[in-house]
Amino acid sequence: MSAPATFFAASSRWLPWLWSLAIIMLLIGSVWGLAFAPADYQQGNSFRIIYVHVPAAILAQSCFMLLAACAVIFLVWKIKLADMVATAAAPIGALMTALALFSGSVWGIPTWGTWWIWDARLTSMLIQLFLYLGVIVLRGAFASRDSGSRAASILALVGMVNIPIIKYSVDWWSTLHQPATFTLSEAPPMPASMWIPLLLMVMGFYAFFTALVLMRTRVEVLRRESAKQWVRLLLNIVPERASSVHAASVQAKDERH
């Protein structure tokens, strides 16, 4: 069996577990964070935005690291599966970045009194969103899939090298321009009833992200391997020469999602 086929079969076993884990953690985290965690003594109930803002921001960064790791694996060892994962993950990372930006700026109204402030974290998030868009658009711009994959991988690596530099310079720039503003994530130490739901939400987001990446990678595998025999057996489109027994066994091994 080819690597994508093996991945396809294995991931179908992992997915139910990942989804249940994600849903349980997100549900408990949401209910706890929204209804049971005490209100912040300074920000009141608006601080409950932290439970979606921080996980989205963390995932936005982790996802770019995943893109860069996939890029290395694809460029060095020519493993196509890594590129399929990168293709699947990039839009999720872009969405997470956009969500972190949105929730951050909405949070800005009650805390800073304005939608947008050139806060270091928000600014570097915005730049990261552009990096994601560049990677996604560059991949789509090439006529041949392989060129697009290699171009997107190179750009993801260049972006990864640049992200710490961008962060550092934006931090430096923002301290120069506006000293002593309240930063979103450097909140005073929280009581356990506040940070445990946050931890649950972060882990829930990770589980959700992993499940979604697997799910999207499976679609990408199908798309790229659509001419292969195993895909056709899997979809129950059996050419005349293949035996139906074989098809049934593959089908049983790989429950569809």
Partner: peptide
């Protein structure tokens, strides 16, 4: 490539600009 070029390059220029 022109428009795409600015999309992928401008974010990387920010540290130098700052």
């Amino acid at each position: 490539g022109g428009v795409l070029l600015s999309l992928i390059i401008l974010p990387l220029y920010i540290p130098v600009l700052i």
